[in-house]
Amino acid sequence: MTDTSAEFLPARERRSRRILWLLRALAGDPMAVAATIWLLIVVLAIFTDSLSLLGDNRISLKARNLPPFDFGQSWTLWLGADALGRPLLVRLIQAASTTIGIAVVTVLTSLIGGTLLGVIAGYFGGVVGNVIMRICDIILGFPTLLVALFGLYLFGPSVGNLVIVLAVTRMPAYIRVARAETLEVRERLFVDAARAFGGGPTWILRTHILPSVAPTMLTLASVNLAMVMLFESGLSYLGLGIQPPSVSWGLMVAQGQGYLSSAWWLGFFPGLAVMLTTMSFNLLANWFRIVNDPSQHWRLVSRRR
């Protein structure tokens, strides 16, 4: 006896065709497409910068606070120039690698650390869980920026310290969410089923709990990418983050702040870059969550009709 009526959806492609399917799923979500395009531009920028493909970045007194959209100039000056006459577009591209690099490394550190600690606290509970959660409470008891300031003041401002301090202060959020999700997933029947088959804690955490928790965590991470980028700019502004001559979007906003009335573009374009990037991460995170949840796949397929 076979059922034929429940074949609601086309058979899912095998792994080799997975990428093709992902592309089709991406096409089903126009916002995600836009986000991907912007992120590709950013990646391209980081790539050109790291290969030193950029030309002119000298200080040029002639081009001091040159306004943007003067297409008579060389393309590097199309977004204007800063107070020292450095072309803004080139500076933005250079800042992209610092900003994104710090944000991604920070978020990855807190994501991995936080998820592991949270899942462990949720699945095992007991003393270990309590210790983890109390440490979280302590970190959360202080304002994030204050903890970060204190840490950087103590250990000295450097990129490494910045990443560590930001990662640690953001981690409690991940731990709490991961723990709450784990507590919920742990009670699901399929976890019992795995236990009845002889699955130990490691197996259950790896095959059942982590994949179930991951989409939420990645969504949280993408939201945090934005937040970390903002924190980094704040700290840079206060002189405890990125130190000149290194440059980040946050630092550029900070430096441009003084010129807001005379040369708005100095703060505007790096700010726009931050906004577009964080928004793209958020949109892609949402798409990613749907792609990772088979029961929501219909959203992607149907939207194309």
Partner: peptide, 9 residues
């Protein structure tokens, strides 16, 4: 035999 039909089809 079988199961209830898909209301979409």
């Amino acid at each position: 035999p079988g199961s209830a039909p898909n209301p979409l089809a």
